[in-house]
Design a protein around this nucleic acid. Sequence first.
DNA 1: TAATCGTGGTT
DNA 2: TAACCAAGATT
Length: 360
Amino acid sequence: MALAEERLGLAQLLLPWYRDHGRHELPWRQTRDDYALWLAEVLLQQTQVRTALPYYGRFLSAFPSWQDLASAPLDAVLAQWSGLGYYARARNAHRAAQMVVQEHGGRFPPTMAAAMALPGVGRSTAAAVLASAYGQDQAILDANARRVLFRAAGLVGEPRSSTNDRKLWRIAEAETPAGAAHDYNQAIQDLGAVLCRAARPDCPNCPVQSRCRAAALPKRRELPREGDRSARPRRYATLLLARDDGGRVLLQRRPERGIWGGLWSLPSLDDEQILVDSSLRAQVLERYAAAVGLVLHEQSLGPVQRHTFSHFSLEYAVLHASLRVQAVADKGSPLLCWDLAAALQLGLPSPIRRLLEQLD
DNA sequence: TAATCGTGGTT
DNA sequence: TAACCAAGATT
């Protein structure tokens, strides 16, 4: 592919721009600590800077080092991750920290192969950490770099196709300057985030406009659509909000696999359609009682609400009930009653946290 | 290869 | 409202 072999020479234009206009104030740019830099990369996976920013400081305070994270209970890690989404990242980060302590002497492994063997560390994350923490010449290909290079090289087709994926990695490696990979990686990410945005790219102010094949095109603003993903399937559930006489709320720990893995949530009864018919509520209560071994008394059924996940949309209603028997007391049970204040310290999914915060 | 895995902001 | 998108990795 002649196109992919041709150097665009982005670095010499990008680096001066970065010095003047880069987001140097970001907290993970104030350190060369391998733990902090790895943490930032994991927090930022599929997550915008604005969203991850407050989590970074809180997480570092709670777990300042590999050792602190490795020895922490998973529940404490998930609690810090609560609300950020893609919770497999938290579980993987916890295991990765344990591997770093036990197998790598408490230091991020300094080779691509060893780094990518850590759970939750793929090629781009590994490269980013090795470049930033150790100054290695490693090319990244995150969403920003992918978009910038796709446009600059004038690629066509789907950006995530395997063919374009190979081309983009080859271009990324060719454009990454020896001895300045860290700054270049930051620079191309800043360019993508600030100027070369997915929508409404600011081409007139772009420092690499002269090397960009897409800038001259009338449709430079458009990127090929991801394969027209069919509409999100809709799922339905009834969530049980049961409280005992002391106001404690019944929560259930979700299995590690699947959505909200490892988090504490309300007991959920999945259904084929939303329960708006009051005649069905009694059945729900019976099914809960049977499944959980509790005596429940219905109080009210809340309005239908919707929560959108990455690949499906959930319609749910909250069934408020009083809990007569405090039957689920044994430790190790995934079903426990919690004081409201204690519950809010757990790893909760966002909609569940919002719901509990509105109680009392 | 194609699904799976969250959430909040923007359009 | 609904679609799109984000410092991707895993199976």
